[in-house]
Design a protein around this nucleic acid. Sequence first.
DNA 1: CGTTCACTTGAAAGTGTTCAATTACTGTGG
DNA 2: CCACAGTAATTGAACACTTTCAAGTGAACG
Lengths: 220, 220
Amino acid sequence: MYRLCHPGDGEEAPDLPHGIVKRKRTLKRGETLYRAGEPFRNVYAIRYGSVKTSLVTDDGRVQVTGFHIAGELLGLSAIVTGRYNCEAKALEAAGVCEVRFDQFGELSRQLPSLQYQMLQIMSQELLHNQELMLLLGKKNAKERLATYLLNLSQRFEKRACSYTRFNLTMSRSDIGNYLGLAEETVCRIFSLFHEEGLVTTRSRQIQLNDLDRLKAIARG
Amino acid sequence: MYRLCHPGDGEEAPDLPHGIVKRKRTLKRGETLYRAGEPFRNVYAIRYGSVKTSLVTDDGRVQVTGFHIAGELLGLSAIVTGRYNCEAKALEAAGVCEVRFDQFGELSRQLPSLQYQMLQIMSQELLHNQELMLLLGKKNAKERLATYLLNLSQRFEKRACSYTRFNLTMSRSDIGNYLGLAEETVCRIFSLFHEEGLVTTRSRQIQLNDLDRLKAIARG
DNA sequence: CGTTCACTTGAAAGTGTTCAATTACTGTGG
DNA sequence: CCACAGTAATTGAACACTTTCAAGTGAACG
C-alpha cells in the first residue's frame, strides 16, 4: 500500500511518484507547526515524535483536540475553510512530511488508492472524535483518565511498543485540557489510581498494572 | 456542482449519472435508519427532515453526536471499520437518499468532483466535531446552550429559513445529551434565558430575541 | 545552587446532577 | 369536541463531583 509518508526516523525513500512536492521538516519540542487562522496550504504526515492540536477561546481556555503520533495526518479539518482552525505544536522532537494540498488532485490521479486512503483516514478521525465526545459529554473523571490511558496503550500496542509501560510526552495540564478536566483533577486521579495499584507513575513515566480493572473503570 | 442528492421535497431528478444505485427512503418520526454495529453498506444524504445520531454506553448513557438536516451526509464514520458506530434516528418525518458505498469508487471516476466534495464534507464534519469538543470540554451550561441556539440559527439562515424563530425538532433530553448536560439543566437555562428576555420559548417553538447578547454569552 | 516550571495535595466554593413532585403538551378514541 | 392517557417539560431541594485557590514538593537546567 502506498503511503503519503513512511513513519520512522530513517531516510528511506518515500514511496510516492517522483515530482510530488513533499518537504520534510523537523520540529523541536514546543515548536509550532501551524497556527489557527493561517491559510491552509499543507497537510502534514507525522514521521516520528508527537504533536498536539488545540483550540483556544478568546478568553484563553484551551481545548486539546488530539495527541498525534507517527503515521497520523494533520490539518484535514482546514480543507473546508481554507484556514487552519486549530494550532499544532510538537510535544517532543518530531519530524513531519509536508504535502501541498493543492497537489492532492493530481496526486490521487497518479495514485488511485490515495483517495480511498484519505477516506479511511478521515473516517478514522471522525470515529475518534465521536468517542471523545462521548467521553467529554458522559464520563466522569476516573472514567476519562482510564479511557485515555487505555487508548494510549492500544496505540502503542499497534506500533509494537510496550503497551503497559510508556512515557507520556504531554503534561498533566495538556491531559486535562484534552479530557475536559482541571490539571489538578488529573493529578488527583493519577494519585488515586496509584494508591489502588492500577498504575505506577513516576512523573511522566507510567506503567499500567491492571488493564482489566482499568477497562472496567473506562467502560463506555 | 453535482450533488449526491438534492435537498428538498420534490421529485426532481437527481443530478447524477444514470445507473448509480440510489434508493430513496422515507422515515417516520422516531424510526431508525441504522444502528450501531450493523454492517456498513450505505451512506445517506438527507433530503428533508432531521435526523439525530447517537452513541450509547453499555450502561445506557447516551451521547448525541449530531443533529442533521437536509443536505447533510450520514454514515461517514463507518467507512474505516465497516460497521456503523452510532445509530441514526429520525426526529421528524424525513427523506433520505441511500447511496451504496461500494459504488463510490466507480462513482467518483464518473464524477471527479465527487472526490473533492467528499473531502469538503468530511472536513466540515471534523471542524464541527472540534467545535463541539471545545464546547463539551470547556464551556459552562449557559455558554453551551447559547452556542447551540446560535448554531441552529446559522444553519437555518443558510437555508433561507427564519433564523430568529424556529421549531426545535429534538427534545430537551436530546439537547442535553448533545450538550453534555442533564435534561433538567437544559430546562433551567431555557427558563433563565426566557426570564432575561434573551429568548421566548413555547414548548418546542423558540424565538431568539437578542442574538448579540446570546453571542456574548456563547463566546469561544 | 538557585531559579523555574511541572506536579501534587488540601480546603473551600461552585456548578451541575439527581431524585422527586408538578405542570403542560400531544394525540387518540369516545 | 372533550376526556384521558401518556409523554415531555418544568421546578425545587439535597447532594456529589469537579474546580478554584493556595501552598508546598519535586525535578530540570543554567
